[in-house]
């Protein structure tokens, strides 16, 4: 997969690589899990698949990682976005692609490009407001350009030792440490909310006709409230952003095992997609995995 393909997320048509019938990887040595750090550098991988049951891919992703060194070096930065579109007549894939591009554009212009400003006098908004507005702008674009379409969107903007996560819908961001896989976003899914309230059991939820209804999504109209939080980057740990085609199918323990078992996040992403397809691949699958070193 070329660098550009990876950035723009168009490569996963390469089904051979992600097919459940593909080459099996060797079983992982459990002792390796949570063991030695992968690298002294930040590493990223991303992968996507239409899945087994779907004809179209309505997911979209964007991944950008930067680092510099030298006198007066810029801290590591990264911008990662996953979106899972919805709506008929192909409006789901248009909504997710448009939103990812819109968010990436806004965040690059309002945060990343300012890193290169030699004068350093950028009069910027707080980063959380930049992220919030990026998602709200994407919402306006979808409302006006893709009526009937909508999308989830989860983005992480990494600057130095902090990452600011903007989130709407039921894609997820995880922080994986050697000890646990922790979800740091809240699913804006109606059925999940009913389970939380004790109105539905997990098994009822799994077959509930409204299980795909979101109570918050890009494209929903005016007044989109975006969840925005800033977390310290996990030292010797991962950030995983994925659509429900992964987390709804592959258990957290399995995700944890695959992330720590691979020798590069790219290999781990490919393996995660393969695991989701092996489990039936009922939906589009997207994963972006970022490894942060211990120092």
């Amino acid at each position: 997969m070329t660098f550009l393909q990876r950035i723009f997320g168009k490569a996963p048509t390469d089904l051979e690589q992600t097919s459940p019938d593909g080459i099996e990887t060797a079983p992982l040595d459990p002792a390796a899990i949570g063991g030695a750090p992968l690298s002294n550098h930040t590493l990223v991988g991303s992968s996507q698949s239409t899945g087994v049951e779907r004809a179209h891919n309505e997911d979209a992703l964007f991944a950008l990682l930067g680092s510099s060194s030298g006198e007066d070096s810029i801290p590591d930065f990264g911008l990662f976005v996953v979106a899972d579109g919805m709506g008929g007549h192909r409006s789901g894939e248009v909504a997710s692609a448009l939103s990812v591009r819109s968010v990436a554009h806004r965040l690059a212009a309002d945060s990343l490009l300012q890193l290169f400003d030699l004068n350093g006098s950028a009069e910027g908004l707080p980063l959380q407001d930049v992220v919030r507005r990026a998602l709200q702008d994407a919402n306006q674009s979808v409302v006006s350009k893709v009526p009937g379409g909508g999308t989830t969107l989860t983005t992480a903007l990494v600057l130095g030792k902090q990452m600011t996560i903007g989130h709407v819908g039921d894609s997820r961001a995880y922080i994986l440490t050697p000890h646990e896989a922790k979800v740091v976003t809240r699913d804006h899914s109606l059925v999940n909310r009913l389970v939380e309230l004790g109105q539905l059991t997990e098994s009822e939820a799994a077959v509930h006709p409204q299980r795909n209804v979101l109570y918050k999504a890009i494209g929903q109209g005016a007044n989109l409230e975006v969840d925005v939080e800033t977390h310290p980057i996990p030292k010797n740990g991962f950030l995983l952003i994925c659509s429900d085609g992964l987390w709804g199918v592959v258990p957290d323990e399995e995700i944890q095992r695959i992330a720590w078992g691979a020798d590069h996040p790219q290999a781990a992403c490919d393996e995660l997609i393969r695991a989701a397809n092996a489990a039936g691949g009922p939906d589009n699958i997207t994963a972006v995995l970022v490894y942060f070193p211990s120092t």
Partner: peptide, 18 residues
Amino acid sequence: MKRTTKALNDITTETTQL
């Protein structure tokens, strides 16, 4: 396929580029 809620004809103080 997912669906979402729609808030239509929502009078708010938000301005648009219309």
